[in-house]
Amino acid sequence: MEEIGIATLSLLIANGIVTYKGLHDFTFFDNFSFNVDQILVNKDSKRLVASGFLHADWTRFAFNMITLYLFSRGLESSMGIPSFLILYFTSLIGGNLFALYIHRNHPDYTAIGASGAVSGLVFASIGLFPGMEIGFILLPIYIPAWLYGIAYVLYSIYGIKSQRDNIGHEAHLGGGIVGLLVAIMLNPSILTTNSLALSLILFPSLTFLFLVIKKPHLLIVENPFSRSKKVFTMEEKYNSNKASKQTELDTILDKINMKGYDKLTKKEKDKLKELSK
């Protein structure tokens, strides 16, 4: 049994610390979670990475970390730490960017979790280790990794189209595709040694990406919670956000004029400092 690598251990610890902090501090959780408007309107790009270390509960954290642990051992030892970390973070960011594109007109869409990064590790393993088999927890069943990859892609596409659950299929699929592409870039020889499996996985994935970008009307990619809402342009979102901040500032300034600065609460003073930047 391979020992856990330093990069894997560091990621496990970082995920644990950030998740613990987020579950006990809502402000921290809110400041670092994936949020469409915060990223597109307020240019808060750190959320593309930070949200991947937050989890909604310890069950989801455990599932992601167990998967990270199981798939990272072979990858880190065979790829080396720098390439492994490149794979992890490009999958994380790639998955979130795909989710951002899918939900760009859904201002209230939020997400968290390491699933995009973990999916990248899983798909990279499928590409790099063609003979690998994947089992299921509590079930003595093993299937070829490439078959699992195909099923995963098709399920993710269905999940994105149907939007019937609370799972971030977009980040899963985006992270998985990016992870597989990074594995190919770092080890091009797998294009010949594992060409059939790669083709079966990449063809539906890239076809779906093409349709999402070029012909989205054919897919009806929509969030059911946002269908009744007006779709705002980026300029409208920016102006609305700016007006909201101005209203907050005016309210605080009015209180200062009427009662003086010393009558402000600590929260109001902090907000005044933030809005005055």
Rank of each mutant, 00 (worst) to 15 (best):
K237I: 14
L202A: 06
L202P: 02
H217D: 15
G174K: 02
F232I: 10
N223M: 14
K230D: 06
P224I: 13
R227L: 08
E236C: 05
L180Q: 00
S228E: 15
S205H: 06
L191H: 09
P216S: 13
L211C: 11
P224K: 11
L180I: 02
E222S: 09
L206K: 03
E235W: 06
T192F: 14
N194W: 10
S195N: 11
R227E: 09
F232K: 04
A183K: 01
K237C: 06
I184C: 02
I220T: 00
L173R: 00
I190E: 05
M185N: 09
G175D: 03
E170I: 06
K237H: 11
G179R: 02
P216M: 10
G176Y: 06
A197F: 09
A197L: 07
L218K: 13
G175T: 02
M234F: 13
S195M: 08
G175V: 01
L218G: 10
S205P: 01
G179W: 05
F210M: 09
V178T: 04
I190S: 06
S226W: 15
A197N: 12
P216W: 10
I220E: 11
L198N: 02
L219N: 04
L206I: 13
N194Q: 07
L209H: 07
L181T: 01
G176P: 07
V221I: 10
K215C: 14
V231Y: 10
F203D: 03
K214C: 12
G174V: 05
T193A: 08
L198F: 01
E236K: 05
L206F: 06
L173V: 03
